[in-house]
């Protein structure tokens, strides 16, 4: 019997793929946003609102990742008119850089300023795998509770933008916005926190502006 020393992180290959993808995107001038959340937090509804505010200013395409079905991709296409593709993870709970690259290959090669990856609804696994995105965003909805940043630390640590959705139902839930902000900033002092209601449209302009600023910074 012989022993071969390896001493290599299991995620090293993915991290390398992700960094390579980011470099290529930089050269092509494409900003990739990785959007994560629990199932049912309103990712697709929020995206539709944001895309409709931005589509006259920048060219946008969407990749919808789910275990199965193409309802989200169809919904985005019908509600916004932008290009959208559905990625199936085949039972996997997250996307990695290689799967993201395959998704990008299905989109138009030229002329996209902003590609949005709607990751699988899950607060655990997607946080573990770098997709090659330029920025990470997540949506936490009011009914989920303000203590989620305490329960899922990694997700909140890696997100540049935390959107707090469904503020229209705040009167019906014991959701403490100040505590939520405190908990998010405890995980990531640099996080931008934007409360919105995708249903009423409140706060959507701020999310659209954040994205627009980030896309412009990336394309400099």
């Amino acid at each position: 019997m012989k022993v071969i020393e390896i001493k290599k992180s299991v995620f090293a290959d993915n991290d390398q793929d992700a960094n390579l993808l980011r470099q290529e995107l930089k050269q092509r001038g494409v900003f990739l946003l990785n959007l994560m959340s629990s199932p049912g937090s309103g990712k697709t509804t929020t995206l539709i609102q944001v895309i409709n505010r931005l589509k006259s200013q920048i060219r946008i395409a969407v990749m919808e990742a789910d275990i199965d079905s193409d309802v989200d991709a169809v919904k985005i296409r019908e509600a916004t008119g932008v290009e959208s593709v559905q990625l199936h993870t085949g039972g996997m709970c997250h996307l990695d850089a290689e799967m993201t690259r395959q998704g990008l290959d299905h989109l138009s090669k030229e002329g996209i300023d902003l590609a949005i990856l709607e990751n699988v609804g899950n607060l655990v696994c997607p946080a573990e795998f770098d997709t090659g995105s330029v920025k990470n965003a997540m949506i936490l909805s009011v009914p989920e509770g303000h203590d989620k940043p305490l329960k899922y630390p990694l997700m909140f640590t890696i997100c540049d933008l935390v959107i707090i959705n469904k503020t229209d139902v705040l009167p019906y839930f014991d959701f403490d916005m100040n505590k939520c902000r405190e908990y998010v900033l405890m995980r990531n002092p640099k996080a931008t926190i934007l409360p919105i209601s995708a249903k009423t449209g409140e706060g959507i302009d701020a999310v659209a502006q954040w994205l627009l600023d980030e896309v412009r910074k990336w394309k400099l």
């Binding site: 071969i4 390896i6 290599k8 299991v10 995620f11 290959d13 993915n14 996997m92 709970c93 997250h94 990695d96 899950n122 655990v124 696994c125 573990e128 795998f129």
Partner: peptide, 24 residues
């Protein structure tokens, strides 16, 4: 929950090292 994905990564890495070293 993502353990299966981790297993696939490990197997990929191990197979690569084994092949490089001519291991059966």
């Amino acid at each position: 929950m993502h353990e299966l994905g981790v297993v696939f990564y490990i197997i990929k890495d191990v197979k690569k090292v084994a092949e490089q070293n001519g291991v059966q």
